[in-house]
Design a protein around this nucleic acid. Sequence first.
DNA 1: AACGAAGTCAACCGCTAATTT
DNA 2: GAAATTAGCGGTTGACTTCGT
Length: 190
Amino acid sequence: MNRGAWTAEEDKILSQYIKLHGPRRWKTLSIQSGLNRCGKSCRLRWLNYLRPNIKRGNISEAEEDLILRLHKLLGNRWALIAGRLPGRTDNEIKNYWNSHLSKKINQSQHQPSLSQQQQLQPPPPPQPPQENVPPPPPPKIQEEESKGNYFEFNFDTNEFIDFSAEGNFCEIDWVNTFLELDDELYELPC
DNA sequence: AACGAAGTCAACCGCTAATTT
DNA sequence: GAAATTAGCGGTTGACTTCGT
């Protein structure tokens, strides 16, 4: 099996095969196309680079803002976030987050807002343990927060938020309003 | 100019979920 | 219903590029 960077010739073979047979059955594709690549590699190459309408680079301020907001809402659900940014891939969003946005957030965390400063008040002194009294079960929300710096939603966000509307996502004002309302609830991830 | 450090990003890996047999 | 196969996801790696000294 070939590994590493794809060549232009391999891209051509993959594109031609998918044009004929469609983007599915990746294992079969990798064998029948003659590409000496594993199916997973073929799938990734198609999804991230070869499929139509892929946008590359130059993430706009509006897109960046939307990524920040969606990340605040959804956490590291890159595929879900990328699905709201036409032409962008989960891999690109993830890379952009790790190399650009996470730094921005770290910088902004070093300059806490007033509300954040209020949260930095020292915690109350620990209560002495009470004998023969079992500790209360931890609140459920605490358990779910421990999975990440965001709440685990037990509903389908696709049902909750209809993102099916095409066009300029900045026009979805109520989403922006909703996300702004979250500002006090969600801490930015580290 | 040369070198090492830091940054970027394409590709891979391991895992789970969904689908097919 | 069980097993096998396929698809998809997020985390991580490593090659390459850029920057600073």
